[in-house]
Amino acid sequence: MTVSPLIEARAVLRRAARTAATLLGPLDFSLGAGERVAVIGRSGSGKSVFMRVLAMLDPSDGGELLWHGRRVERHAITRYRRSVAYVQQRPALIDGTVEDNLRYPYSLRAYRDARFDREHAARLVAAAGKDADFLSKRASDLSGGEGQVAALIRVLQLAPEVLLLDEPTASLDPQSARAIESLVQAWFDADRAARASIWVSHDPAQAERVGERRLTMHAGTLTDHRETRT
C-alpha cells in the first residue's frame, strides 16, 4: 500500500497581483510524514511565497495542492489550516498576558471542539526554558525572543501535523533561537511517524540542524539536494 504525502504541490504557480510577474513555479513538491525539510535561498527568491501558498494563506494561480492525497477544496481549508500551521518571523500577539494569547485560539470557531489545557501549556513553557510566571507576563513586555516562544507555544498546543516555519528565529539572539529549535524538535519527536516540518532559514548552520532534507530556492524554483547527489 502506497502512503500519500502529507502535502503535495503539483505544478503550483504564483504571480504578482499587479505585474503578473512569476513569483513561484510552476513547481512540484511533496512532504512526507517524518520529514524535516530546510529551505535556504536569497531574499526575494520566493521562500515566503512558497510557504504562504503551502499554508493556503495566499492563493495559487495554477496547479493544485493535495493533503493526504486529496485536493484541498474550499470547504476543507479551515481544517487544513488547523493541521498545517504557519509560523512567521514576527508573530502578532493580542493585548493581555501570555496565557490570554494561548487561550485565544480556543475562542475561534475552528477550535470549538477543543479546550485550553493550562498544564500542557505550562509543560511547553518549561520545555522552552521559561519560568512558571511566563504565562502571567504581559505580551507588551515580552522581548522578541519571548514573543516568538509564546507564539510557537500557541501553535504547538494545538498539535498540528505540519509546521511551516518562515524564518522564525531570524531576528533573535542565539539563545532564543536555540530555544525555538528545541521546542520544534520536541514537538517532532513526540510523534515522528505522523509529523513533518519545513523550516526556512537564512543560516546554513541552522539549516543543517533543523532539516534532514535541504532545498534551495532560486527565482521561484526549488532544488532538492538529495536529488542532485551522484
Rank of each mutant, 00 (worst) to 15 (best):
V87G: 09
F188L: 05
D117I: 05
M1A: 11
P174I: 02
D95K: 14
L23F: 10
I77F: 02
V98S: 15
Q206V: 00
V72F: 12
V53L: 02
R123W: 02
W199H: 03
P91Q: 09
E99S: 10
G25C: 06
D141V: 09
A194L: 15
A132H: 07
A177W: 02
P105R: 10
A205V: 13
H225R: 11
L163H: 00
A150T: 04
I198L: 08
T230P: 15
R229F: 13
L172H: 03
A219T: 02
M217W: 00
V37F: 04
I94N: 13
P160L: 04
E227G: 13
P5I: 04
V125F: 03
R213F: 11
G144W: 00
V162K: 05
G62W: 09
R82P: 14
A159M: 15
M51H: 05
G46W: 01
L135K: 01
A193C: 14
H75M: 07
K47A: 04
T2C: 07
V155H: 09
A151W: 13
D189P: 09
E161K: 15
A17R: 15
L135T: 10
D61W: 06
P204C: 06
E208K: 05
T228G: 14
L13N: 00
H202C: 05
I180S: 10
G46R: 03
S43D: 02
A150Y: 00
P91I: 11
D113V: 12
Y104G: 01
V125S: 07
H202P: 06
D189M: 08
D141I: 05
Q175I: 00
A193I: 14
G96H: 14
Q206N: 00
D58M: 08
L108F: 11
L27Q: 10
G147D: 07
L222M: 02
K130W: 08
K47R: 02
E119V: 03
D224F: 07
H202D: 06
L24R: 02
L108K: 09
V162A: 06
R79W: 01
R42N: 06
R18N: 13
